[in-house]
Computed example of a mutant assay.
Amino acid sequence: MTLATHEVCQTPSYCLYSEGKGIQIDGWSIAVTEGPILSSNEVETWQSRLSLKLPTMVFGQNTLSFLWNGERKFYFSAFDGLQTVSHESPSLRVKPAALWEDKQSTFDSPATNYDWTFSTNYGGTWLLEGEETTLSATQSYLDWPLLRREDIPLLFFKELSLFEDELDDQGISSLSVRLRVMSSFFYVLCRFWLRVDNVHFRLCDTRVYHRWKTNVVIREYSEQEATFEQVAKLGIDSRWFTNSDFMQKILPVTKKSAYRYYVK
């Protein structure tokens, strides 16, 4: 299943913003904001607003916004991503989990529970209405032959971390977003990556694709996960366990869907 042909369209005129703040191209304005991790005062404010204990590093100023003809259509932010974290303890259990739960009792917030893995299916904040389709593990609306071509000029690239937590040295939980603006399309990967050492792997990927001179934006979402035991049976060198790009190639897909949005 594919949406687009593999021919490369002519590069539209474009303008790069100063200091790597974004790009304007084919009616789209893609804007980037960046900043340091939240200060202690900001952490307290966010925790109160979210009723959630925050990851150790939250990049609250990091955002990626997409405007079409001057009107914002979708964006990515740490605050909105954290809003989707569950206020229920996860089923995953490790030895330090009791320690994390004890920390809740000292957390001055109405919330008494939270997901200490910070798992989220966040794939951006969308201000467009879309049509959702359930996909099988092997189906895709993305034009992968085009996305994998290496001869298409890269006009703009940005990678932003939204939050990260090392789970008290028991793994990693992170949410990030990557953007490629090519001469033929833009492509976004928003990834939640969880590794709980000796317990579990989880990937939640949202891929966004738009080809210039079309009015369609594709958002494709997938969930992949497996236990450490399941992955160990594959005989993979454990040095790869910290590499989300490698693990994405081997973890089984447990859920997949796609949205099609139309802009005018």
Score class of each variant (00 low, 15 high):
M1S: 13
T5E: 09
H6W: 08
Y17A: 11
S18K: 14
S18T: 07
S18Q: 10
K21C: 08
G22Q: 02
Q24A: 14
D26V: 03
V32E: 09
E34S: 14
E34I: 14
P36D: 12
I37R: 14
E42C: 06
V43M: 06
V43P: 03
T45A: 12
W46D: 07
R49S: 14
R49F: 11
L50R: 14
S51C: 15
K53A: 14
L54V: 07
T56N: 13
V58A: 00
G60A: 06
G60L: 09
Q61G: 08
W68S: 06
E71T: 11
E71M: 00
E71H: 05
R72A: 05
A78M: 07
G81C: 13
L82N: 12
L82Q: 11
E88D: 15
P90C: 00
S91I: 11
V94L: 12
A97I: 14
A98G: 15
L99E: 09
E101G: 04
Q104A: 15
S105K: 15
S105L: 13
S109P: 07
T112R: 10
T112Q: 08
T117P: 03
S119L: 00
S119R: 07
N121P: 00
T125Q: 09
W126G: 00
L127R: 11
L128I: 04
L128Y: 04
S136C: 09
A137D: 13
T138M: 05
T138W: 01
Y141P: 09
L142S: 07
W144C: 08
W144N: 13
P145F: 01
L146I: 03
R149P: 04
E150F: 02
E150G: 07
I152A: 04
P153S: 05
F157W: 11
S161H: 10
F163V: 04
F163E: 05
F163C: 02
E166V: 07
D168T: 03
G171A: 02
R180L: 15
V181D: 10
S184N: 15
F186K: 10
Y187N: 13
R191S: 08
F192K: 10
R195I: 06
D197E: 12
H200C: 04
H200Q: 09
R202C: 07
L203W: 00
C204D: 05
R207E: 03
H210P: 04
R211G: 07
K213F: 15
T214F: 07
E223A: 03
E223Q: 09
Q224V: 03
E225N: 10
E225T: 01
F228G: 06
L234C: 08
I236H: 01
D237P: 10
D237N: 15
D237I: 11
W240M: 12
W240C: 10
F241M: 00
F241I: 01
F241T: 01
N243A: 06
Q248W: 02
K249W: 01
L251S: 08
L251H: 06
T254A: 01
K255G: 12
K256L: 01
S257Q: 13
R260M: 06
Y261L: 09
K264N: 13
